[in-house]
Design a protein around this nucleic acid. Structure first.
Ligand SMILES: [Mn+2]
Ligand SMILES: [Mn+2]
Ligand SMILES: [Zn+2]
Ligand SMILES: [Zn+2]
Lengths: 138, 138
DNA sequence: AACGTAATGAGAATTTTTCGCATCTTGAGT
DNA sequence: ACTCAAGATGCGAAAAATTCTCATTACGTT
């Protein structure tokens, strides 16, 4: 039940929050914009204001329920946080997003941060390229 | 002379372009927003419209004179391209930006792209953290 | 069930970036 | 140097994404 997840995260289990979390958990698409969520709410008849979508996604981010990405300038992309950190590889032709985790890179990043005297809090690695499908068809 | 660099890049050596390129080359700050460039133009008395700043920076990017970054949501950051690729480590307290290059990470990225069948065209790695100065003073 | 606090919705406002178009430059040709 | 067309600029309007304001509503605790 989403209500419990919300309470556990210290958030009131309001209808909009439950609906949004439910949608994020049931969607097969893992990475989506606020607008994507908004449209999905409209289609399912669950009217939630766009401002609320933004507020809720931001709150979800601050309690760790979702992660926000900036793959391309212009808009944020959100993803339900399933616990395992990973980075992304994005197709510049079709927008397909693959995920990966590389221990070597993770380790080097920590070393680099330390070497520069930074206390690392986060990092974002995004590889851009042309996916197998898009390469074939041209 | 900036005019030559512009011609070499296939761009007309217009006054706004020369002024902007000149500013980018002479500034001690390497990473700046369109607004930063705009304000600098105003201060130096070289009036260049903001729309032109955006147009020129985008053109500079497409001919490889500058690189555009999306360190944080909300606005692009531009940097004069000096030839050597590098990644960034950004202080979340003061905004300080350090640069680094790590051959191991670069290599792993190429391997990951290949393993996923992607033809890599670009990548962006940004480490976020608290810089030495900001750690000390608190 | 009642209440105080926090959340929502709708639209206005912001912020960043792009567009449209009349006017002005640049650079090639003379 | 002079002319001219293509391309560039400036300005304000327009877009696009996100945040804010504030009156109204919903939680969840009593
Ligand atoms: Mn992901
Ligand atoms: Mn840099
Ligand atoms: Zn693709
Ligand atoms: Zn700092």
């Amino acid at each position: 039940m989403q209500s419990q997840d919300l309470k556990k995260a210290g958030l009131k289990a309001t209808l909009p929050r439950v609906k949004i979390l439910n949608f994020l958990e049931s969607s097969k698409v893992r990475h989506m914009s606020a607008e994507d969520v908004y449209k999905a709410m409209l289609e399912s008849g669950d009217d939630v204001g766009l401002a609320t979508i933004y507020r809720v996604l931001t709150q979800f981010e601050s309690v760790g329920l979702v992660t926000r990405h900036h793959f391309e300038e212009g808009h944020s992309v959100f993803e339900l946080n399933l616990g395992e950190h990973h980075d992304h590889i994005v197709c510049i032709k079709c927008g397909r997003i693959d995920e990966f985790y590389d221990a070597t890179i993770e380790k080097r990043q920590r070393e680099i941060a330390a070497k520069n005297g930074f206390e690392m809090t986060d990092h974002a690695l995004c590889i851009y390229g042309v996916c197998p499908d898009c390469r074939d068809q041209k």
